[in-house]
Simulated scan of single mutants.
Amino acid sequence: MNDYILTIACPDRIGIVHNVTGWLLKRHGNIIDAQQFGDLETEQFFLRVHFHLPVAASIDELHADFATIAIKFNMQANIYDAKRKARLLILVSRQGHCLNDLLFRTHSGQLPVEIAGIVSNHNDYAGLAQSYQVPFHHFPVTAETRISQEQQILDLVKQENIDLVVLARYMQILSDNLCQALSGKAINIHHSFLPSFKGARPYHQAHERGVKIIGATAHYVTADLDEGPIIEQDIERVDHAMSAHALTQVGSDVESLVLARAVRSHVEHRILLNGNRTVVFR
């Protein structure tokens, strides 16, 4: 199947959709699905088009052919092969529920990705990785070795042609340099409904505050801790009888679901940045 996805972000003006559909018509393309959004506040326009071509074309060829329109409308335009599976590198520490969920969803065909490797600063999940025949990389880290350990991660990203790095409860704060190197292609799951309870031990913070709702947030990684553009969130109701440990158990399920949704949205090219916010097409 010669299926492709075109995503566009640009200043909103008349003629954008007309020019895009005209380009597709010229190439005898058939639109399978299209979604658009015009932000009245930022005056930005966002578009995602899933289309089919009768004759296969390379991504470079399509980009070159579309360049005239992209320049005309000052577009950030990207074209992707809709059938190509994204390659993931998962980072994890000692909480493995999100890792286990991503492995199962991928293995069972629910998540259209290839998990190229797992990196951890502990050895706890080497056996789990082996059971799924996924390479496991033990990169221990201390304050003294952080720079070299993060370089190992970057080397692996390059070596394995990684499209997305997933922080599946990786409990290390990334350096500014690593955040910049992975900008736009690293997703973190934070175990609270941001912007509430940032930082460490959010379930204990929530328990002390006596909240009635807890949640989880998947966001892009930035140098500002837990401040990256939010991709996906969900919540669960809790009550006064629940301990911090009980909140953690409930929250673990929410985290796994939220992270899987965020990963799917990213690899299906449904997310466009709108400043420090996101447009997520369903």
Score class of each variant (00 low, 15 high):
residue 45 F to I: 08
residue 43 E to S: 13
residue 279 V to A: 01
residue 102 L to Y: 01
residue 206 A to F: 01
residue 84 R to T: 14
residue 148 S to D: 15
residue 69 I to A: 10
residue 270 R to Y: 08
residue 247 L to K: 07
residue 31 I to F: 06
residue 12 D to I: 03
residue 229 P to G: 12
residue 43 E to R: 06
residue 204 H to W: 07
residue 263 V to R: 00
residue 52 H to D: 15
residue 220 Y to Q: 04
residue 140 P to Q: 11
residue 153 I to F: 08
residue 156 L to G: 05
residue 258 V to C: 07
residue 90 I to E: 10
residue 150 E to Q: 12
residue 118 I to P: 03
residue 143 A to F: 01
residue 5 I to S: 02
residue 35 Q to Y: 08
residue 185 K to W: 10
residue 29 G to K: 02
residue 63 H to G: 12
residue 249 Q to F: 00
residue 40 L to W: 12
residue 139 F to G: 08
residue 15 G to M: 10
residue 82 A to Y: 06
residue 194 L to W: 02
residue 135 P to F: 03
residue 155 D to T: 09
residue 115 I to F: 02
residue 233 Q to R: 07
residue 191 H to E: 15
residue 87 R to T: 08
residue 141 V to P: 00
residue 262 A to K: 04
residue 74 N to S: 14
residue 235 I to F: 08
residue 159 Q to A: 15
residue 131 S to I: 04
residue 275 G to T: 14
residue 118 I to R: 00
residue 192 S to E: 11
residue 5 I to R: 04
residue 25 L to K: 13
residue 18 H to G: 14
residue 158 K to G: 05
residue 253 D to K: 08
residue 165 V to G: 02
residue 154 L to I: 02
residue 261 R to N: 15
residue 260 A to S: 15
residue 22 G to I: 07
residue 262 A to T: 08
residue 151 Q to V: 09
residue 269 H to Y: 12
residue 210 G to M: 04
residue 80 Y to C: 05
residue 137 H to C: 05
residue 175 S to R: 04
residue 20 V to L: 12
residue 217 T to L: 05
residue 6 L to T: 02
residue 20 V to I: 14
residue 280 V to S: 09
residue 19 N to M: 13
residue 2 N to E: 14
residue 78 N to F: 03
residue 98 C to E: 11
residue 179 C to D: 10
residue 106 T to C: 09
residue 132 Y to H: 13
residue 269 H to A: 09
residue 118 I to W: 01
residue 181 A to Q: 15
